[in-house]
Amino acid sequence: MAGDDRDRSYDAGAASHRALRAIRRELERHPLVASVRGFPAETRPRVVAELDPHRLDRAVGSATVTVRWFAGETAASDPEFAFHYSEADGIDCGWHFGPNPHVDGRGHFQERADATEAYRYEAEEFGTLVPARVVWEVMQALEERIEEG
């Protein structure tokens, strides 16, 4: 009975909505981010952060991180998410978590040299699945990826 009540009180849409809102707030706080758009003003549930290429030390016209997040089918389910980084004519990569045919675990990193090529995938461990913390973890990983050149 108690279990039924808990299930009924969980709404995957509401939980995902809350996660996207928290993600937006963290991106607005992040020093590399110039502005944030997308959710909740636009129809699609995506948060898009415009990064400042100067602060990233990148000689590109634009650099964006696009985030989608689903909180999970049930209260006990893991979330599914993707943070995709792309530059105008530059790096195209992303940090993903969820069922996928590319690696053994749920977490993976993917990157391709340009739009005509296929992505290459590698397994990625996330230290946390709390939305706000994942934002800072991915942004840290992004800085490291950029330092690699």
């Binding site: 709404d11 995957a12 849409g13 509401a14 995902s16 909505h17 996207l20 909740p40 129809t43 699609r44 549930p45 989608r68 689903f70 599914e80 069922p99």
Partner: peptide, 13 residues
Amino acid sequence: RETANEWETTAYR
């Protein structure tokens, strides 16, 4: 599956 996920959030919205 991704569409189903997006549908849940869209329905809530």
